[in-house]
């Protein structure tokens, strides 16, 4: 349990550091250093991960690709979490017709494969980073919403919420100061897991050619380029693939670890500690 968390954290840290310091770490420029004379070179001392069919250094492109992938993953998940939390908390808190509406919407979202939905949005908006952020940010909030709603339902009848109400605090204030801080844990877990799936979705969309356009490197479009070289230069596909794998695995392990650390009745554990001291 602990090991998973530490391992996940390590993977994520490596990827994040690689993305931040890509300009320092990358031995070549990911786009400009194309050299057809040195295309499809196997990994060696100069090109640690070899070169692709245009002679660009795969390592440099993987490092720069991490920036795109992480940015897309994190930003789209922030959009998802915000939408999900806002809808879920308000639905759970107010109940009634609004709750029915949000529930219906969530169920519809869960019924549509989110990647297909994102594909449709991309088809409308056209490729590019902003539309990718929108497409992925609007399609994956249903789990966040469900968790936020159910946690709110159990919290809203707690007497500290009733106390805040009778002290005169408004509904929005109560949602923000009484309910949200108490469900941040589970939302964080889902958010972390969501980043992993967003990275995967970005790769899939870019692989299909409607995500990040070449020549900007992203792990997805690197795989597209490398598809035809699978026999002659497998390294051009293996390393971006490994990067995706490591990142998604890292975020999933991190999320699972966070859940284990936050979930097992953290409040009772703290309460018991308090009671034992008293």
């Amino acid at each position: 349990m602990r090991f998973n968390f530490v391992f996940g954290l390590t993977l994520v840290t490596i990827v994040v550091l690689g993305a931040i310091f890509a300009p320092l770490l990358a031995p070549f420029h990911p786009i400009m250093d194309a050299d057809l004379m040195s295309s499809q070179l196997p990994p060696d001392g100069v090109h640690l991960m070899g070169t692709d069919n245009q002679g660009r250094d795969v390592l440099s492109r993987v490092l720069y690709g991490a920036r795109v992938s992480l940015m897309v993953g994190v930003v789209s998940q922030i959009i998802n979490s915000t939408i999900g939390a806002a809808l879920g908390i308000s639905a759970g808190y107010f109940g009634g017709r609004w709750d029915d509406f949000v529930n219906g919407l969530t169920n519809v979202m869960l019924a549509i494969p989110s990647l297909v939905f994102a594909l449709a949005i991309m088809a409308v908006l056209g490729p590019g980073l902003p539309s990718l952020l929108i497409a992925l940010g609007l399609t994956n909030w249903s789990w966040t919403c469900r968790i936020a709603r159910s946690s709110t339902l159990s919290l809203k009848s707690q007497s500290f919420v009733l106390a805040a109400k009778s002290a005169g605090f408004g509904d929005w204030n109560i949602m923000r100061t009484q309910i949200l801080p108490n469900i941040v844990g589970p939302l964080l877990v889902i958010g972390t897991l969501g980043i992993g799936s967003a990275v995967l979705a970005e790769a899939a969309l870019s692989f299909l050619g409607i995500g990040i356009r070449p020549p900007t490197p992203s792990w997805g479009n690197m795989l597209t380029d490398a598809r035809e070289l699978l026999r002659s230069a497998p390294w051009a596909a293996i390393f971006p693939g490994l990067a995706i794998f490591a990142t998604v695995l890292g975020f999933n392990l991190l999320g699972d670890g966070l859940r284990d650390m936050l979930d097992p009745h953290m409040r009772t554990a703290r309460g018991d500690a308090g009671a034992a001291r008293a």
């Binding site: 007497s159 500290f160 009733l162 106390a163 100061t177 009484q178 801080p181 108490n182 409040r267 309460g271």
Partner: peptide, 12 residues
């Protein structure tokens, strides 16, 4: 309130 454990927000 009745339950002194549920009547205080644990985060504040």
């Amino acid at each position: 309130f009745q339950d002194p454990f549920a009547s205080l927000n644990p985060r504040i």
